[in-house]
């Protein structure tokens, strides 16, 4: 029998909470001024502070893509994004994808339902936001391209073929809209 010390070991750092900083974000078209601690990720800000829980936490380490949102029009993993660094940015989440109209569906949302491109639904908002980013990037021409460029979004239910079909249909429906 030996002894061992776990967790932090000895630390000399202070236990003070970091000072909050005021930032302004445009979230789904609405300007929000918020006081945010530096250690708050965009993901936690959306989910815990703004009650926009459509953006999902799957791994919290950029490994699964469930937290994907559009930041200034580009898809990013919000779990690895510190909110304070994005002062002035424009964020679109799954809740705002259809131009904030609660009853309308974005072509991707329609296509995901039609093609049954999800089962449990937990990776779905990230898949859809990622697909919106993919379409905006305009780089995917083939099914192979879609598969590769959507590989940052893990679907454990295994809906991948349906996800690819849904994205292809939405791309067509959007007529190559950027």
């Amino acid at each position: 029998m030996g002894s061992s010390i776990g967790a932090a070991g000895s630390r000399s750092e202070s236990q003070a909470k970091p000072a909050a900083i005021s930032i302004t974000l445009t979230v789904n078209g609405e300007s929000r001024t918020l006081s945010v601690a530096p250690w708050t990720t965009l993901l936690d800000l959306l989910r815990d502070r703004l009650d926009l829980t459509g953006t999902k936490k799957g791994c919290d380490h950029g490994q699964c893509g469930a937290c994907t949102v559009l930041l200034d029009g580009r898809r990013v993993t919000s779990c690895l994004t510190l909110a304070v660094m994005k002062d002035g940015a424009e964020i679109v989440t799954i809740e705002g994808l259809a131009n904030g109209d609660a009853d309308a569906l974005h072509p991707l949302q329609k296509a995901f339902i039609e093609h049954d491109a999800f089962q449990c639904g937990y990776c779905t908002p990230g898949q859809i936001c990622s697909a919106a980013g993919l379409i905006a990037e305009g780089r995917a021409k083939t099914a192979d391209d879609i598969r590769e460029l959507m590989s940052g979004n893990i679907c454990r239910c295994g809906a991948y073929p349906n996800i690819v079909a849904a994205i292809q249909e939405a791309m067509d429906a959007m007529g190559g809209r950027r």
Partner: peptide
Amino acid sequence: GASAQLRNM
């Protein structure tokens, strides 16, 4: 390398 999201960041 990585994923499209991470390459954007």
